[in-house]
Design a protein around this nucleic acid. Structure first.
Length: 535
DNA sequence: GGACGGGTTGGAGGT
DNA sequence: AACCTCCAACCCGTC
C-alpha cells in the first residue's frame, strides 16, 4: 500500500523526535512536508517582529534539513481548510499527518481539517509530541479535570510512569521511498518568505541573540549539557533576573515552536542526572521546569476560557481597572521605576526576559501597583516574547496576579529593592536604560531621589529625560492588598482589628489545622516554599 | 519565585 | 575579667 502523504508542520518544527513526520514517510511513495501561513495568526494573534523572525528562521532551517534529504518544505499561505482541500486534490493525497495541538484555536481548526480529510478519504495520523505526556490522558487519569496543583500533577505522572522516549530522527533511510519531485520554481511558489514578504520591517528587529531553528536549539541544548555541575545544582528561584548573560537556559523559545523536543530535553537531562549521584529535584530543578510547562499545558487544555478572567472557572474575579496611560507606560518601559522599565525594554528589544523579571513586572501591572487586568499584560507578553506560549503565558499571568494557582496576594514585589538583591550597582538598568547609566549606584534604582546637581551631572533630569514614577509604590501596596482581600471575600484587618480577634483568614487556617500547637503551625507555614501554597 | 519592621543573638572591640 | 556598645545576621509575624 503506497501512500501520498502530507506532513503538516505547525509547532514541532524539527526532524528529531517527530513521530507524525516519521509516520508520513512510512509506506509512502510521495511526501510533502508543508507549513501553512494561516492568516488567522496574522490577524488575531499578537506576533511581534522578533517572533516572526524566529519562526521564519525555524522554517528556513527545516527547509535546509529537508533539502539534504532530497525533500523540501512547502510553505503555503491561506486558510488551512482551503489550502488543504486544494492540496488534497492537486497532489492526490491519501494521508495527512500532524502533531497534536492542545490550544483552543488549534483544536477547533484540527477538528474541521479532520472532517475535511474524512470527506476526501484522506487518512489522518495525529501524534502527541509537543508535551511530555498526552495531556488528555493526564486529565482522564485525574478523573476528567486537570490537576491544579504541581503536587497533584507529580502524583499523577508518577502513576502514569515515565514519559515516552523520543523517536528516531528523520534520516535518509526513512525518506528513501519518497519520489516527490521539486519543481524549478519551488522557491517562488513554496519558498520560506522573508520578513519583508510578510510586510514586516527587518529593521524593527532587535539584535539576533536567539536565532530560530532546530539546529540552533540543539546547539544551545548541547552547550548547556556540558555544564553538568550547573545542571545538577540548578535551582530556579536562585537564578538571577537581571544578570547580563541569561542565568537560565533560554531554551523556552525552542520548546515553544518545537524546534527542540521536550522529551529529548527531558531524557538528555536524565542522562546527566544518572551520571551524578546528587541533583536538585522538581519543582526547582531543570526537570522541574519542564514539569511546570506540562502543568500549565495540562491546565490550559482542560480549562474553558483559560486565557480570560470571565467565564474561567479557576480564575478569581478581581475588579481590575482600565488605565490606558498607565498600561502604555508599563508596556513601553516608562513607569519611572528603572528596574521595571529596564525589564520591559529588554522584553521589547530582545524577546526574552528572565522568569523572575516577568514576576516583577507582572506583579507591578496587576495586584502590586497599577491594578490593571492580567489579560492586558498577557497581550503584551504574547506580542513580544519569543517563547510566548498560550497556556504558559495565561497560567503564569494568573499565578502572578494571584488570580489562580497562587494566592499569597500580600507577597508584593518592591520595584525598587527587588532588583538590588542581585544587582546592587544596577548594571542591568544601565545596559537597557542608557539614559540612566551615569547615575551613581546610590540613585540608580530611584533616580528621582538624586539631588538636582547629581541629575545634571548624570546628564539626565528626571521629569525631562526620564519620567518620575507614575505612582507611589509605597502608597499603592497597602491599598491594593486591601482590594485583593476584598476580592477574595475576606475582611481586611487594620492593626486594631487584629487585637480584637484576628482576621477571618486566620480563623480559617486555625480551624483547618485543628489540634496543632500554634507555634508549631506557624513554623511549618514559614518553612513552606511558594510552590507549596498551591491549593 | 516578597518586604518590612521589630525582636533576638552573638561576635568584635572598647572601657 | 566583667561588662558595655555596636552591628550584622537571623527569626518571626504581619500585610
Amino acid at each position: 500500500m503506497s501512500h501520498r502523504s502530507i506532513h503538516w508542520f505547525r509547532k514541532g518544527l524539527r526532524l528529531h523526535d517527530n513521530p507524525a513526520l516519521l509516520a508520513a514517510f512510512e509506506n509512502s511513495s510521495n511526501v510533502w512536508p508543508i507549513f501553512i501561513l494561516d492568516p488567522w495568526f496574522i490577524k488575531n494573534a499578537q506576533v511581534g517582529v522578533n517572533r516572526w523572525r524566529f519562526l521564519l528562521q525555524s522554517l528556513q532551517d527545516l527547509d535546509e534539513k529537508l533539502k539534504k534529504l532530497n525533500s523540501r518544505l512547502f510553505v503555503i499561505r491561506g486558510n488551512p481548510n482551503e489550502v488543504l482541500l486544494q492540496l488534497f486534490k492537486e497532489w492526490k493525497v491519501t494521508r495527512l499527518t500532524f502533531e497534536v495541538d492542545t490550544e483552543p484555536y488549534a483544536k477547533q481548526r484540527d477538528i474541521e481539517v479532520e472532517e475535511l480529510a474524512k470527506k476526501h478519504n484522506v487518512e489522518v495520523v495525529k501524534c502527541v509530541s509537543h508535551t511530555l505526556y498526552d495531556v488528555q490522558k493526564t486529565i482522564e487519569t485525574n478523573g476528567g479535570k486537570p490537576p491544579l496543583t504541581y503536587q497533584r500533577l507529580q502524583t499523577l505522572l508518577a502513576k502514569m510512569g515515565p514519559p515516552p522516549k523520543p523517536v528516531k530522527t528523520l534520516d535518509s533511510s526513512a525518506v528513501m521511498g519518497n519520489k516527490t519531485t521539486v519543481s524549478e520554481d519551488h522557491n517562488k511558489k513554496y519558498g520560506v518568505p522573508t520578513l519583508a514578504d510578510l510586510g514586516k520591517s527587518p529593521e524593527a528587529c532587535g539584535p539576533l541573540l536567539f536565532p530560530g531553528g532546530e539546529t540552533e536549539g540543539f546547539n544551545r541544548l548541547e552547550r548547556m549539557l556540558k555544564k553538568t555541575n550547573w545542571i545538577c545544582t540548578f535551582e530556579k528561584p536562585k537564578t538571577e533576573p537581571n544578570s547580563l548573560i541569561p542565568s537560565t537556559t533560554v531554551l523556552s523559545p525552542y520548546l515553544k515552536f518545537g524546534c527542540l523536543s521536550v522529551r529529548t530535553f527531558y531524557y538528555r537531562l536524565q542522562e546527566v542526572y544518572l551520571q551524578n549521584k546528587k541533583h536538585t529535584q522538581p519543582p526547582v530543578s531543570l526537570h522541574g521546569q519542564l514539569l511546570w510547562r506540562e502543568f500549565f499545558y495540562t491546565a490550559g487544555a482542560g480549562t474553558p476560557n483559560f486565557d480570560k478572567m470571565e467565564g474561567n472557572p479557576i480564575c478569581i474575579q478581581i475588579p481590575w481597572e482600565k488605565n490606558d496611560k498607565h498600561l502604555e507606560a508599563w508596556a513601553n518601559g516608562r513607569t519611572g521605576y528603572p528596574f521595571i522599565d529596564a525589564v520591559m525594554t529588554q522584553l521589547r528589544r530582545e524577546g526574552w526576559i528572565h522568569h523572575l523579571a516577568r514576576h516583577a513586572v507582572a506583579c507591578f501591572l496587576t495586584r502590586g501597583d497599577l491594578w490593571i487586568s492580567w489579560e492586558e499584560g498577557q497581550k503584551v507578553f504574547e506580542e513580544h516574547l519569543l517563547d510566548a506560549d498560550w497556556s504558559i503565558n495565561a497560567g503564569n499571568w494568573m499565578w502572578l496576579s494571584a488570580s489562580s494557582f497562587f494566592y499569597q496576594y500580600f507577597r508584593v514585589y518592591n520595584p525598587i529593592s527587588f532588583g538590588k538583591k542581585t544587582d546592587k550597582n544596577g548594571d542591568y538598568i544601565r545596559k537597557y536604560l542608557p539614559i540612566l547609566s551615569k547615575f551613581p549606584e546610590k540613585y540608580i534604582y530611584e533616580p528621582r531621589t538624586a539631588p538636582r546637581d547629581i541629575q545634571a551631572k548624570a546628564g539626565c533630569i528626571i521629569g525631562k529625560d526620564y519620567p518620575p514614577p507614575i505612582l507611589d509604590h509605597d502608597k499603592m501596596r497597602p491599598i491594593n492588598i486591601k482590594r485583593m482581600a476584598e476580592a477574595y471575600g475576606k475582611r481586611f484587618d487594620s492593626g486594631q482589628d487584629n487585637k480584637n480577634g484576628g482576621s477571618l483568614k486566620k480563623k480559617q487556617s486555625a480551624s483547618e489545622d485543628g489540634d496543632e500547637a500554634p507555634k508549631k503551625k506557624v513554623k511549618k507555614f514559614r518553612n513552606k516554599k511558594m510552590t507549596d501554597f498551591l491549593m
